[in-house]
């Protein structure tokens, strides 16, 4: 079985960027396939609520 890590180094990165927008822009500038997730703290930053939601999922 080809490891997924080998496919990454062979094919090059196809990126999902989560967080700093400047990293998304740097990947775009280098011409690689990249999509950006507009991230915000889940459950409005309420850790207890997030923990409960994760349990439900």
């Amino acid at each position: 079985m080809t490891k997924k890590i080998d496919k990454l180094v062979k094919d090059g990165p196809l990126v999902i960027n989560i967080g700093l927008r400047s990293f998304f822009e740097a990947s775009k500038t280098q011409g690689i396939p990249v999509v950006h997730i507009k991230w915000e703290p889940p459950a409005r930053g309420n850790r207890e609520l997030l923990h409960l939601l994760d349990k439900l999922l």
């Binding site: 496919k7 999902i16 960027n17």
Partner: peptide
């Protein structure tokens, strides 16, 4: 338009074959 994704699953639909997540959110998340 590429800024619309809200989740990793959604982003995967937008970029099938994606092989790397670059994660720079606050450490607690």
């Amino acid at each position: 338009s590429t800024l619309l994704y809200r989740s990793i699953r959604g982003a995967l639909a937008g970029l099938p074959g994606a092989n790397l997540a670059v994660i720079s959110v606050p450490g607690e998340y």
